[in-house]
Design a protein around this nucleic acid. Sequence first.
DNA 1: CACTTGACCTGTCCGC
DNA 2: TGCGGACAGGTCAAGT
Length: 296
Amino acid sequence: MPELPEVETIVRGLKPRLEGVKISRLEVLEERTIQFDRALITEIITEQQISSVWRRAKVMIWDLQSGYSLLFHLKMTGQIIYQGADNFAGGHPTMSMAVGAKLPDNTTRTIFYFADNSKLFFNDQRKFGWIKLLPTAEVHSDSFLKTVGPEHDDTQSFTPQYLWSKARNRITPIKAILLDQTVVAGIGNIYADEALHLAKVHPARKASSLSKAETAALFNAIITVLKLGIEHGGTSFSNFVNADGEVGNYIKHARVFRREGQTCPVCGSVILKTRVAGRGTHYCPACQPPPRGFQA
DNA sequence: CACTTGACCTGTCCGC
DNA sequence: TGCGGACAGGTCAAGT
């Protein structure tokens, strides 16, 4: 489940390899992945140099010299795997043991071929991920990106006061607020649970029940876990691999996510799993006291 | 408008 | 062993 740190890791891996490189061909193996007019591929993408690789929320963006941009969303099971010429990427074998199989495989939806003989595979078991093509000037008005909230490191827009203003009048669980992409960009199920544990706030608490101090703690926790995730090269427990097909290792450092039945790293209590905002949710019953009336 | 639930997909796991 | 169902979880659409 690629969230912000995973996409950021991919972008950092691809940036030095793709900027300045030309796309020579696009091979589409799954039509639904390509959410733009196929007729535009040859006219607008082919032989167009990639001028910039960047990220907004969970979306990776390639700006092309043609004045168009490619947008990629990996949703839950998407993978971006770069394969350098001669099967080597940056001096390292392209595929790690954890990924193993040769490419393309039965989850490969699109293949990009570059003028320097490198390739990039867009793999996606569940076919929810997409690739769009937009004029670069319209990237920010994309149907998804136009509604997305501030980045976690945007110190001008993302502040404790801002988070407080988004939560104070809401009856919905605080976890739903964190998952709401219009509030803050890039948090998914993993980092929502991690941030709430770090802030010692139960996921099912009504957003409006949080004190200013708790909201400030949550604000700090969001920034901490996202930055930690980026430092560790993204989470990986099933489908996430970075641009070289290597697994990230944040999950080794997870505090509560997918650790039900194990002990809380803070107090040693047994971590529980429940369902909040329609998602599997992990928490420590001692560090994160449930609200009154909460049924696990 | 606020909030919840289902749909989109496919692979895995669990109980019978 | 096979089979049905729950589950995984990002976003959008439809429902209450």
